[in-house]
């Protein structure tokens, strides 16, 4: 079943009426439980697309459906928002509470969950992002990366069906990045749909499917092998992942390596069989 169905979606920011649309005729279906990476240059429309997935933005033309529910119908808003968790690139835009634990409890409270369940979810989410020590901190006193972890915890505590990470790991240290991706992948084992917007092709290489955006359009999509290891990414302002680049260089030196290497474990397995 598709959890997301986007059809002929065009979006024009009001301020930019005279300009080109930020999204231009997007068609995209995402299956339940799928892990999709969205990549593309700055300004290509990734965040604009993400904001449609929980009805923060509504299509200027075309439709966006989440679990069969049209985002344009106000009566669907509640159901859509509780099923789609969205974490933005800049956490300051989404932190609301005065204390870390309230911040995380905010969503579950709005769902009307019993206090014991809320407590459980808050502790679990803070543990997952490594913020247990800062439980009683004020969010604005946290460092940049701590804020980003907090925003992620807030989304996790909602236990959404679909999690959209819009460069949510950009301000994290390497360890934090790995931890968050690991949490996301664990949740995926439990059936979560994961949509990950990233500038790191190494992260995109872990997805089931990679979608490339360019100037408001989807210009390519396929498996990481098809997109990251076999396409000229430079024309979209992108670069191949490290494993692909090393494999290419070794091939140019005359080594006979199979095509389609895009993850480091694949490269290691190929070079050290």
């Amino acid at each position: 079943m598709n959890i997301i169905e986007i059809s002929r979606l065009t979006y024009v920011y009001a301020a930019a009426k005279e300009n080109t649309p930020a999204l231009n005729g997007i068609n995209l279906n995402i299956g339940e439980g799928e892990f999709v990476a969205i990549v593309g240059a700055n300004g290509s429309g990734k965040s604009t697309l993400a904001r449609h997935l929980n009805a923060l933005l509504l299509p200027t033309e075309g439709t966006c459906k989440v679990m069969g529910l049209d985002t344009a119908r106000p009566e669907n808003l509640w159901d859509i928002r509780r099923q789609v968790g969205l974490v933005f690139q800049n956490p300051d835009n989404q932190l609301v509470a005065a204390i870390v634990e309230d911040e995380v409890a905010f969503g579950p409270e709005n769902l009307g969950l019993p206090p014991a369940e809320i407590r459980l979810r808050v502790d679990k989410a803070l543990q997952a992002v490594g913020l247990t020590e800062q439980l009683h901190f004020a969010p604005h006193l946290l460092s940049g990366g701590q804020k980003q972890r907090l925003a992620i915890a807030g989304a996790l505590a909602m236990e959404p069906k679909c999690l959209v990470l819009d460069e949510a790991t950009a301000m994290l240290d390497p360890q934090g990045r790995e931890e968050v991706m690991q949490v996301a992948r664990d949740l995926r084992e439990q059936g979560l749909t994961l949509i990950c917007i990233t500038h790191f092709m190494e992260e995109a290489a872990l997805a089931d499917r990679v979608v490339v955006m360019h100037q408001g359009k989807i210009v390519a999509q396929g498996t990481p092998k098809e997109i990251l290891a076999a396409t000229d990414l430079a024309k979209w302002g992108l670069e191949p992942p490290l494993a692909t680049e090393i494999a290419d260089r070794l091939r140019r030196r005359g080594l006979n390596l199979p095509r389609g290497i895009c993850r480091e474990d694949e490269l290691v397995a190929t070079l050290c069989p």
């Binding site: 500038h199 992108l238 670069e239």
Partner: peptide, 14 residues
């Protein structure tokens, strides 16, 4: 510069 390349696309970063 405090994390200047966070959020830049691969070409922009380079």
């Amino acid at each position: 510069l405090d994390e200047p390349t966070a959020g830049l696309d691969p070409r922009g970063r380079k």
